[in-house]
């Protein structure tokens, strides 16, 4: 209930979200009446078994998918009713995506990969360069700008992906298993980096993970079970 008291000043407020998928004549209920408030600067982890709806929830929060019913207020704006076109523009301004498999473009350098989201802005070439260099410096890869993904380690690739996610200074970051494909050492480095982004740069980070060690880094942890959001790590009802 405490969480609901702060709903008005929440950066992300999810209200009675339902998400169903149709498989033939069968309706599969993936998310059931999910309610959630997340504040600016929070580091939130979503845990749960496979098929519990974690990634679906992340997709809804990132504007990649739309709920069957309910509302998702982000910075006061309801994205649940937005058109696909509007969502595309909204995503480019508000969301930084970090994926498990990094998803860098292999034929582009680290610099060019990080620059990609900036191509959608009106920034000049020199401004884009400045932003890219700053983002790569934050993730500690200022000296790897001209390297291609194949010339980087998995951890470095993920850091490039994080630089790509933060280069436009989005409202929040969505991380889908960001350490799932990394060894423990690299995973810790990535988690350190995400923590630093929250603590030093006041970023809001939402992370889906199976890894309890990764989840422990988050200030708030939610558990999803069969599409229902359980109490968070603070013992609060969502």
């Amino acid at each position: 209930m405490t969480n609901n008291l702060h709903a008005q000043d929440a950066l992300i407020a999810v209200k009675n979200i339902h998400k169903n998928y149709q498989r033939g004549s069968e309706t599969i209920e993936v998310l059931r009446d999910v309610n959630l408030n997340i504040h600016k600067g929070e580091f939130v982890a979503f845990m749960g078994p496979s098929g519990s709806g974690k990634t679906t929830l992340l997709n809804l929060l990132g504007g990649l998918d739309v709920p069957t019913s309910g509302h998702i207020f982000i910075d006061g704006e309801d994205i649940a009713g937005m058109s696909a076109k509007k969502l595309t523009t909204w995503r480019s301004r508000h969301v930084g995506f970090i994926f498990q498999m990094y998803n860098l473009i292999p034929v582009m350098t680290a610099f060019q990969n990080v620059e990609l989201p900036l191509l959608l802005t009106r920034l000049s070439k020199s401004e884009r360069r400045r932003h890219v260099e700053a983002a790569l410096a934050i993730v500690g890869l200022a000296d790897r700008m001209s390297h291609y993904p194949r010339q980087l380690s998995g951890g470095q690739e993920q850091r490039v992906a994080i630089a790509r996610a933060i280069v436009t200074d989005p409202t929040f970051l969505l991380c889908d298993e960001p350490t799932g494909d990394l060894d423990r050492k690299s995973a810790n480095e990535i988690l350190d980096l995400l923590t630093r982004l929250v603590q030093e740069h006041a970023k809001t980070v939402l992370m889906v993970t199976h890894d309890p060690l990764a989840a422990n880094r988050a200030g708030t942890r939610f558990h999803l079970e069969k599409g229902v959001l359980a109490v968070n790590s603070k013992g609060e009802a969502p």
Binding site: L64, K85, T88, R91, S92, F97, N103, P117, L120, R164
Partner: peptide, 16 residues
């Protein structure tokens, strides 16, 4: 497919 999905995710619209 995956790269195109990422491009679309980060804001590249269908027409682009």
């Amino acid at each position: 497919i995956n790269e195109i999905a990422v491009l679309k995710a980060i804001g590249f619209g269908p027409v682009r």
